[in-house]
């Protein structure tokens, strides 16, 4: 598996926004993960070509970041926060409840491939403790009963959450005529024109 035609086009556009192609690496890996749910060897090889790195560099970099997966996970990745603010409102018990009710260990995936449960670090919703994310969409002040309802909704396809790997539903896009212009650093040695206005002021 490699990148779809639509994603090839998208990748080319993203690379064009950075002064060096390698800077597009993480956004492109996300593109691949949104496509397949995890990073396939084929996609990583293709991305290596696109950004001018070796496949080993790509995999080595991806491995540093917890969100990237090298194997399929559940359609819904459930991340329960147990960090300090959530701990104080029962985050650990919520994680325990999640594992018990889905019959998985922390990090495990249900037999039907629907859910993977993980322990999250602080997800910046601390006043909403205990909280969790499903495919990086938030739910706050979650009681065990809320959790069970959420799982029901997800099973029934009522929660409106896309499959694993999909993050933003809107992508940045820059019309060619609006782009100020991206060049490698060594080709942009001049001060931008408007900065010179300081000198005009000094003369005045």
């Amino acid at each position: 598996m490699t990148l779809s035609d639509a994603n090839e086009a998208q990748a080319a556009e993203i690379i064009g926004w950075f002064p060096r192609p390698r800077s597009a690496l993480i956004p492109l890996l996300h593109l691949a993960q949104a496509q397949d749910g995890y990073l396939t060897d084929g996609a990583m090889r293709r991305i290596a070509e696109l950004v001018g790195a070796t496949p080993a560099e790509v995999k080595g970099t991806a491995g540093f970041y917890e969100m990237f997966r090298f194997e399929p996970v559940g359609t819904y990745l459930v991340n329960v926060c147990t960090n300090i603010s959530c701990l104080l409102w029962g985050g650990e018990e919520l994680l325990e409840h999640a594992c018990e009710s889905l019959d998985v260990e922390v990090g495990g995936t249900t037999d039907d491939g629907m859910f993977t449960v993980e322990e999250a670090e602080c997800i910046a919703a601390c006043t909403e403790a205990p909280c969790l994310q499903v495919n990086y969409r938030y739910r706050g002040r979650v009681t065990p009963a809320d959790f069970d309802r959420l799982i029901e909704d997800l099973r029934a396809g009522r929660a409106g959450i896309a499959g694993h790997g999909v993050l933003a539903q809107v992508r940045q896009s820059i019309p060619a005529e609006r782009l100020a212009g991206v060049v490698p650093p060594e080709q942009a040695r001049e001060a931008p024109v408007w900065l010179a206005r300081n000198d005009v002021e000094a003369v005045r």
Binding site: I26, H30, Y65, I174, E177, R178, L179, P192, W194
Partner: peptide, 27 residues
């Protein structure tokens, strides 16, 4: 970008900036 606040010739001036969103992956 569409409204001319970002990109080439911002607000009709000689001021041009590209703003590109990048995003992390859990670290």
């Amino acid at each position: 970008y569409e409204a001319g606040y970002v990109g080439r010739g911002i607000c009709g001036r000689d001021f041009s900036v590209d703003i590109v969103m990048a995003w992390g992956a859990g670290a």
